[in-house]
């Protein structure tokens, strides 16, 4: 007997939660306990009194599973609101990566040239290395990192996605 798993489409969820101890463990635990995917998860508090946090989760699954993920998140006591940004329509996604490249000579020059094309900023440099800061959607960051692999990439740190719906309305 073989065990099969379902695949599905990618969804970006914005989840507003009480900024309380253990909430992140509760959310990530829900995903692991019920076998849902997390491709990316970011969290930070967003209100002046530090009472609310916004969690942006990138997940994937068939439509019924996405619906179930939203319902499961929504029933957690500290969760105020769950919005499926993918379902809702146009939205902006951004993440930041810090990319360290080491090397000298032609590769170093090529790295700098490519960084310019991608509008990545140099935030630290030595005679044999750069750290680039790149902001964009995940595809752009992926492509930049792939190119840097050819130019002496030694280390990458990424934030994961934050996302927000286009237009004047709030969630």
């Amino acid at each position: 007997m073989k065990i099969t798993t379902e695949t599905g489409e990618r969804h970006v969820l914005a989840v507003t939660v009480d900024n309380e101890a253990g909430i992140l463990a509760k959310i990530t635990g829900l995903f692991s306990a019920r076998g849902y995917n997390i491709e990316s998860l970011t969290v930070a508090d967003i209100s002046a009194d530090h009472a609310l946090s916004r969690i942006t989760i990138v997940t994937s699954g068939p439509p019924a599973v996405i619906d179930q993920i939203i319902a499961q998140l929504d029933r957690l006591v500290p969760v105020h609101q769950v919005t499926d940004l993918t379902d809702q329509g146009a939205h902006v996604e951004r993440e930041i990566a810090l990319v360290k490249v080491a090397g000298t000579g032609e590769k170093r020059i090529e790295a700098l040239r490519l960084a310019d094309v991608f509008r990545a900023k140099v935030v630290d440099t030595t005679l044999s290395s750069f750290i680039f800061e790149i902001t964009g959607n995940s595809d752009k960051v992926d492509r930049f990192i792939a190119l840097m692999r050819e130019c002496g990439l030694v280390e990458v740190g990424r934030t994961g996605i934050v996302a927000i719906a286009r237009g004047p309305e709030a969630l």
């Binding site: 253990g22 509760k26 635990g29 957690l76 006591v77 500290p78």
Partner: peptide, 14 residues
Amino acid sequence: TVGITRHCTKHNYL
């Protein structure tokens, strides 16, 4: 305790 019971309670507090 809150870690252990996080996923077997409706809600928990420390």
